[in-house]
Design a protein around this nucleic acid. Structure first.
Lengths: 254, 254
DNA sequence: CGAGCCAATATGTCGGAGTAAATAGGGAGA
DNA sequence: TCTCCCTATTTACTCCGACATATTGGCTCG
């Protein structure tokens, strides 16, 4: 009983939209994990603190122990907590948290985002994306260029004020990552893309964008299409710098 | 007894911490997650494939459904699988996998490691670590330098042939990441550290190390201590390049 | 100050009721 | 007759709560 490739892809596309878009639309243990995850990320539970016993918590949340335990397994898998018999379930130190997990990233931005953490994220982006653009310029094929071109067109149609526009922006960056032929870099795309999405939302919240982002993106595309590695890296560098600048000013302003 | 005792003992990797992290004994659901995780990473279950029902699998492994479900929650949290009522739990496409999760990384290297993936990892390392060294040279304080110095001393005492030596190597790189004052970069340390640990094990398996790694590390340390950003980045660059070269040759040779 | 017991707490198990969704079957319209 | 939509069934995950076990921090005793 083999599932055809087409069937599988269709299924996945539909399912992705379903469970990515909605936060509480998940199952019960997912909702509990979300609740506890945001609580931990926001500092409501400090590292080293012990979550009151299994049964106590389950009763407090009005759910069964099974649901609570499954939620704990999720948090444990992401390195947020660890539980041992007799010792209880305690929050792990921050450097054990898997902050690049897209879900954890979402929890981190659920409340008031830590501006220092945002700075760290952009610093990482400023390191990874120019290097990725350099590799993309060397390895891209026609398919990659088409993906980027399509994403750019979508960015022009919608603007960054719409979700569709931000999705196009993410698609553009993802296409670049894909062109690097590097799985490890590609995985970072999900994390960084999610983070960028949150921060661009903040930009929008503060005020209308003061700058048209399209020309900067086009410069990156042109350099990659031309196969000019140095120019691609440099163009991506200014793109990230400008994004950081925008985010910083809008955050300090609010 | 379908779950062998050996499955319980494969813990740790890059988990060691200066904190109160005592040797954690594996639990049943952890063992099952490990079993299924390695099976998926090794390609035994292809993306899109459906894992035969909850009850069937639980019976096959001679464990309760609860234990199996908790294992599935772990895999689901790492993006390896997704389960929906009636549809069953199916393996997600590779680009949804959280490959930078230290545990997933461990599963990926449990069997025969994909050489293309190793190349990707080192490419990422070649991007991140020199940039990290550059930042570390600008921001390090006395405490950071002491951590690096201690790690270097430990590397000299033990060699890379011992687990203690490899731990010291990881500590050295982690100290650099810590000196960048960047949480996002620091989190990568766990992933990259784990990966490096696995690959250095492979290097050892193939043959004795042809080169003394200490001088290269010392050059990095000196540049960071001197606050010379460019020199630190360059020194780290050659360090990573040499490591990649060693790994590549030992893998193609075997 | 160490060895050993004890109880608190997480871990593992079981079976059943609930719920969502894919598929098949039947009915209405063209 | 063919196509489409709608409903019913069936299947598998989801959630529950009680019970049994294992582990271990902390206490007591020597």
């Amino acid at each position: 009983m083999t599932v055809s490739e087409a069937d599988y892809n269709n299924m996945d596309a539909g399912a992705r939209q379903g469970d990515d878009a909605r936060g509480p639309g998940r199952r019960l243990h997912g909702a509990i994990a979300h609740k506890l995850g945001t609580a931990i990320l926001s500092g409501k539970y400090a590292p080293g603190e012990i979550l009151s016993g299994e049964v106590a918590f389950a009763e407090e949340l009005q759910v069964s122990r099974s649901a609570y335990r499954e939620a704990i397994q999720v948090l444990s898998a992401k390195g947020l907590v660890a539980s041992r018999p007799k010792a209880g379930t305690r929050v792990l130190p921050r450097d054990r948290w898997n902050l690049l997990d897209p879900e954890v990233l979402g929890w981190a931005f659920a409340g008031e985002p830590d501006i220092e953490f945002v700075r760290s994220l952009f610093e990482l982006r400023a390191i990874v994306e120019p290097a990725a653009a350099r590799l993309a310029a060397l390895r891209r094929d026609k398919g990659d260029l088409k993906s980027m071109k399509d994403a750019l067109a979508a960015m022009r149609r919608h603007t960054l004020t719409t979700e569709a526009g931000r999705a196009a922006d993410r698609d553009f960056h993802k296409a670049i990552l894909q062109a690097t032929r590097n799985d490890a870099l590609l995985v970072l795309s999900a994390s960084i893309g999610a983070a960028v999405n949150w921060t661009t939302q903040f930009k929008q919240r503060a005020r209308a964008l003061p700058r048209n982002p399209i020309p900067d993106h086009v410069r990156v595309y042109d350099a990659i299409a031309a196969g000019d590695a140095a120019a691609a890296a440099e163009a991506m560098n200014v793109l990230v710098d400008l994004a950081l600048e925008d985010t910083r000013s809008s955050m300090t302003q609010s």
